[in-house]
């Protein structure tokens, strides 16, 4: 990847992470850990891969993204705000009464392609969007982001079967493999491993990204995904929950709790420093 582009993506990802902290801090609740682990992914998708138009969020030919792990909405909202789908000020009223930004994604929000958050459901909706694309001979692509804990839901595997059966090669599912869920390590709670073999067995083309915070690796994976014909693609991205905020990294406790004022300040300072370094 071109160094200038990479730096620009890294800078945007820093801003997305700041948006995650801002949103959850002002909300006094929310899910920063898993939002931070997909910050690079959503940045890459919205800035590089996806054809969208903030001025026409509903245009029929747009690429679509379903945040099946809907609790990490702060990351989605932050990138949508960065792209100009709505004002960044909205992030400060996340989860507030009367606010546009709901605790989990709502289809009424500009740029949000599907309401989601009850785990396991988004991937099915993404299948429906992909099937509609085939039926309408539209050339849009559908992305669904799932959690590695989320794939414990049976519905995910119903959807996996369906997508392969109907050859939905316009669908890419990304499993955010940060290894942690609310009750602990995914391998200790009720292990969904081996994730790659499971999706392969269900008829998907599987790509593993060893470092989800490396844009070169993300690009290689999505380029490979694009070349696959006749079957859906699953990208398993190995990520760090809480990535970018030192005290949140790999801490299961940050799955679903918001930073207090002091933590917010510390986290923002770390991200500002990281941004300054990228922009230097």
């Amino acid at each position: 990847m071109d160094e200038t582009i990479k730096k620009s993506l890294q800078a945007t990802a820093c801003k997305v992470r700041m948006g995650v902290l801002t949103g959850t801090f002002h909300a006094k609740s929310g899910h920063p850990g898993g939002s931070l682990s997909i910050a690079d992914l959503v940045t890459y998708l919205y800035c590089v891969k996806m054809h969208t138009d903030p001025k026409h969020p509903d245009m029929p030919e747009r690429d679509r993204l379903v945040l099946s792990k809907g609790h990490t909405a702060p990351a989605l909202y932050a990138i949508l705000a960065e792209k100009g789908f709505f004002d960044k000020k909205e992030l400060e009223s996340l989860r507030h009464i009367g606010a546009m930004l709901q605790g989990h994604p709502c289809i009424k929000t500009p740029g949000v392609d599907m309401s989601s958050g009850s785990l396991g459901q988004g991937i099915s909706a993404a299948c429906g969007m992909a099937l509609a694309g085939k039926l309408k001979a539209a050339d849009y692509h559908v992305y669904a982001i799932l959690g590695d804990g989320e794939i414990e839901e049976g519905q995910v595997w119903e959807a996996a079967m369906f997508a392969a059966h109907y050859g939905l090669d316009n669908l890419t599912a990304i499993v955010d493999n940060n290894g942690l869920q609310i009750d602990g390590k995914i391998t200790e709670v009720c292990s969904p491993e081996p994730i790659d073999k499971k999706f392969e067995a269900f008829g998907w083309h599987v790509i593993v990204v060893e470092d989800a915070h490396d844009f070169d690796r993300l690009e290689a994976a999505f380029n490979e995904a694009e070349s696959i014909v006749g079957k859906p693609v699953c990208i398993i991205q190995k990520s760090i929950k809480g990535k970018g905020v030192s005290f949140m990294e790999n801490q299961v406790g940050w799955h679903g709790s918001a930073p207090n004022a002091e933590q917010y300040e510390q986290g923002m300072n770390e991200l500002k420093a990281a941004l300054a370094e990228v922009e230097a």
């Binding site: 029929p60 991937i123 099915s124 969007m129 099937l131 509609a132 309408k136 049976g154 119903e158 369906f162």
Partner: peptide, 25 residues
Amino acid sequence: FFDCGIAEENMMGVAAGLATAGMLP
């Protein structure tokens, strides 16, 4: 016509996704 197999939860979700893209499922 699309058979979803014995998987009603996914079928309802697929229907939802189809509807977002202007189909009438």
